[in-house]
């Protein structure tokens, strides 16, 4: 009974938020509209982080890597090949998925905090590559002057901030809808099962490594598509868009949102990014100090957001070859081994 009420309330809130987002560009000024479009792109990356961290149980600090791959692929295609949005989206998602597929062998056997470390190193290395590979990425100056996107063949190019924002909103809403549908299928069920009890899933004949690889590539494709949205929103990208602080902010947003919830990830990531943008506006120079203090305060205030991931982490840290021991350790909640 109360579950039904909550579900309805949640649906109503989601519908209200969506309506608010659609009318937003006519209420706020152009600058805020552009900021909102960029926040949408980052929120979509947040969804891919939640997919890996909360649903598949692979905490990640490196989703900026496929995000950057998608963004740069989109910017290069946009300035040299085609200004059609659908083409750019597909190319960007493909680039993100390709990079994610290349990373799979590095992370698929690791669990827990090791994944966090490897993905962080990969994300940072990608930023280093972006800064040095001048012929393609423009180095630390980035790529500017990407032509305005045309959503589909035959449609006019999006010249206004409102148009670009609505394009970003449509893309993000479609992809988030697809993720939600996907999570309701068997694939989503198997992923969650792997997070909750990998040993049992393995014992019942599932190939956990294959599921995790699939989830990683799918999350990479989503992050790549988000990169394309970023290019449309900003018409300019530089390695600074994909730094380590972006990964950490997104992870914080996802943790605030409850780690495994797609809607929570959207709200959490948008909230964290909005706070950052606001802080850098009102406190130039001291924003990182306040932001750092907010990180610490949030971690103290929000122990519940981490619970779901914690059970997975403690389980994953236990050795796999002997299931009884793993079970026992998981229940004790011991992580050291």
């Amino acid at each position: 009974m109360s579950g039904e009420v909550i579900r309805r309330a949640r649906g109503a809130v989601a519908a209200l938020v969506l309506v608010g987002l659609v009318v937003a560009p006519w209420v706020v000024d152009d600058y805020t509209t552009a900021l909102l479009a960029r926040t949408l792109a980052l929120a979509l990356v947040g969804v891919s982080v939640a997919l890996l961290t909360g649903v598949a149980g692979m905490p990640t600090l490196g989703q900026t890597a496929p995000y950057a791959a998608g963004a740069y692929a989109c910017a290069v295609v946009g300035s040299r090949v085609s200004d059609v949005g659908v083409v750019q989206l597909v190319v960007a998602a493909g680039a993100g998925a390709l990079l994610a597929a290349l990373i799979v062998p590095l992370v698929v056997h690791a669990r827990g905090v090791i994944v966090l470390m490897i993905t962080l190193a990969i994300g940072e290395l990608v930023v280093v590559v972006l800064g040095r590979w001048r012929s393609v990425t423009g180095g630390t100056d980035g790529l500017a002057g990407v032509p305005a996107v045309r959503p589909f063949w035959g449609l006019p190019a999006l010249a206004s901030d409102q148009g670009r924002y609505l394009y970003a909103l449509v893309v993000v809403a479609t992809l988030v809808g697809a993720v939600l549908v996907l999570l309701r299928t068997r694939a989503g069920l198997v992923l969650r099962a792997g997070r909750d009890d990998e040993t049992r899933l393995r014992a019942s004949g599932h190939r956990v490594a294959v599921h995790l690889s699939g989830a990683h590539i799918a999350a990479g494709a989503i992050a790549g598509a988000a990169g394309s949205v970023l290019v449309v929103a900003q018409q300019y990208i530089s390695p600074a868009d994909f730094g380590f602080d972006t990964s950490a902010l997104l992870l914080l947003g996802v943790v605030i949102g409850g780690t495994a919830s797609v809607g929570g990830a959207l709200v959490g990531a948008a909230l964290v990014i909005a706070v950052r943008d606001w802080l850098f506006g009102v406190l130039p120079g001291h924003a990182p100090l306040v932001l750092g203090a907010l990180f610490v305060a949030t971690v103290y205030l929000l122990p519940t957001g981490v619970n779901r991931a914690r059970s997975r982490l403690s389980e994953a840290a236990a050795p796999q070859p002997d299931p009884p021991a793993a079970q026992e350790r998981a229940t004790v909640g011991e992580v050291g081994r």
Binding site: D245, T259, A293, V296, V299, V306, A309, R310, L313
Partner: peptide, 21 residues
């Protein structure tokens, strides 16, 4: 709590951000 790696990583990141500033 010992064991919540995500919280620990995020906390140390906050310290890094504030300390760097």
């Amino acid at each position: 709590a010992t064991g919540s790696h995500l919280s620990q990583a995020l906390l140390t990141f906050g310290v890094a951000l504030a300390g760097g500033s």
